[in-house]
């Protein structure tokens, strides 16, 4: 069976909420039913058929041909199967996903992977602010799974992260890993100021010594680390990195001592 493809007809006239278009949400639906699903978020209320040409039938493999930063919530709540976007996506891509794979070949807006619990979200371009982070009022951000940003991530990447692995390959903005509860954020290409700000536990892994940390982080030695070897090999074996991130004996800053203080920023020396 051919993948179920949604070909964008033109730049949408309003922001679209694509969260109904997942394998689980579309299972058992006819093409006519799918084309009648309302995606628009304004009073115009665009339907699938107004914005996309639908082809193919395999709902477990969904492809969006053509992207736009108005395509919000791509693959939100995904539990199995795959979603691919050939182009950009808007806000909250992969929000609350629990399984399956989302691949976005362009850039994404804010809150990509927000509160995700499982699965793999891979973004070939850049991500906006609050990668994996919670929406206002939510207590925890990313809660499992893996998010990979091949480009750059904005500010507050992995804000309030609780579990899982996030990797950013071309640097982060300010407050990377702020308020982390646990989990792992790996960044190649440097972070902005205040990485790990108010983190309680968790690990931020860097390819260089961090600059502009909160003064409540303290230097914590650099012994040989089997953990560094294991995670380096894991990231390389997954095809995420080409060479080890931390090396044999990474340096460590412990913090944030303004709060719980058992988090860590490990960096290649």
């Amino acid at each position: 069976m051919k993948a179920l493809a949604f070909t964008l007809l033109a730049e949408p006239s309003e922001r679209l909420d694509l969260s109904p278009l997942t394998p689980e949400g579309l299972a058992g639906m006819t093409r006519r039913d799918i084309e009648a699903i309302r995606l628009g978020t304004s009073k115009r209320g665009l339907k699938v058929g107004d914005a996309f040409r639908v082809s193919g039938e395999n709902v477990n493999t969904i492809v969006f041909e053509g992207g736009s930063n108005r395509l919000d919530c791509v693959g939100a709540g995904l539990s199995a199967g795959s979603v691919r976007v050939v182009g950009d996506a808007g806000a909250q891509a992969g929000r609350k996903m629990r399984g399956g794979v989302i691949a976005i070949e362009g850039n994404v807006g804010p809150h990509a992977g927000s509160c995700m619990r499982g699965g793999r979200l891979e973004i070939a371009g850049n991500a906006g602010d609050h990668l994996g982070g919670p929406l206002a009022g939510e207590l925890a951000g990313m809660n499992g799974g893996m998010v990979i940003v091949r480009g750059r991530a904005g500010a507050f990447a992995c804000d309030r992260m609780r579990r899982g692995v996030a990797v950013v390959l071309k640097g982060c903005g300010d407050y990377a890993g702020a308020r982390m509860i646990a989990g792992t954020l790996a960044v190649v290409g440097g972070t902005g100021r205040f990485a790990g700000y108010l983190m309680r536990r968790g690990s931020i892994l860097l390819d260089r010594q961090p600059q502009g940390l909160s003064p409540s982080f303290v230097e914590c030695g650099a012994p040989d680390s089997a953990f560094a070897a294991v995670i380096d090999r894991y990231l390389v074996s997954e095809g995420i990195l080409k060479r080890p991130l931390l090396g044999q004996a990474p340096g460590k800053f412990g913090g944030d001592n303004a709060v719980f203080g058992t988090g860590e920023i490990l960096y290649r020396r």
Partner: peptide, 20 residues
């Protein structure tokens, strides 16, 4: 001690006198 889960495996890192 630090708990780390990735790649479907769960590790514990225990601080000791030569590192972890």
């Amino acid at each position: 001690q630090v708990s780390k889960k990735f790649g479907g495996r769960h590790y514990w890192r225990v601080p000791v006198m030569d590192g972890e």
